[in-house]
Design a protein around this nucleic acid. Sequence first.
DNA 1: CCTCAATTTGAAAATGAATTTCGTTTTCGG
DNA 2: CCGAAAACGAAATTCATTTTCAAATTGAGG
Lengths: 152, 152
Amino acid sequence: MAHEPQRRALARYLEEHNLKHTRQRELILDAFLDVQGHITSDDLYQRIRETEPQIGYTTVYRTMKLLCEAGLAAERHFDEGSTRYEIAHDHHDHLVCTRCGTIVEFECEMIEKTQEEIAKRYGFQILRHRHELYGLCEKCQGVLKRPPSELA
Amino acid sequence: MAHEPQRRALARYLEEHNLKHTRQRELILDAFLDVQGHITSDDLYQRIRETEPQIGYTTVYRTMKLLCEAGLAAERHFDEGSTRYEIAHDHHDHLVCTRCGTIVEFECEMIEKTQEEIAKRYGFQILRHRHELYGLCEKCQGVLKRPPSELA
DNA sequence: CCTCAATTTGAAAATGAATTTCGTTTTCGG
DNA sequence: CCGAAAACGAAATTCATTTTCAAATTGAGG
């Protein structure tokens, strides 16, 4: 039942912004950290309601935004539609399996540098970017190679 | 009033799929090609209704999907929200100005290759990808550098 | 502890893009 | 020209998300 550093970070953020420290906010932070990222607000809401049925999904949505502002979470929009949240950490990009939904993070210094060069060429000043590779993870490639009879 | 090659491509696609050749489809194709891409269905609908007020926006949405299937248009989802369509052509990625909305296309062989290497490292087979650089175009950097008094 | 203004909560309603429904109209092969 | 199939378009629906608003909670100052 820990996540002490993040709890303290949240507490600090709330104080600094004259916001209130509520049971719900602590609860949602804990649940979010437990699942280890790349989760939608709704998934998180479903999980939390199992043990805390009185919590509203509006509050989960609102709190995830708050955690982003506090620098504890980061919003991501993959092709599938709904917003996902990951635990905020160093810059990185993603590989997304279009069959099973697995999300793997990667980082590539060389691509980052090349992007800067491209931006310069067009006179742009890059503020952020989005780089997602969609395809099949190792497991799903295997599954799709089997004869049709073996497929569910 | 031309776009003959694309009109013929659409006609061929419709025939091959036992779909019907309608005035609306031709109209929407023409309007789409006229604006030179990166337009939303709704923008396109607004434009078309100026000269053809009886056309429904449902038809515009449906037809843009059709043009994608026919390989004449391609769907793009930038951060701002609604789906944009561009004229289908060789693979490329985008620079997007977050202030004025200007969209510039770029292509980088080196990044493409690097992506493949990254995918291999994680056992992924890439099917498609999305690479967007968000920032300020040259013009907007200039505007934002002026003293506040000059800003609208 | 108490009070009370400010904030937060949560249910319900609203939003906005996109899709579906369905009765009517159009297309096109015979 | 006929009629079945396809397409149209207005309206309703969906789905994720945001907003609204009355009631509940928080926490600073007494």
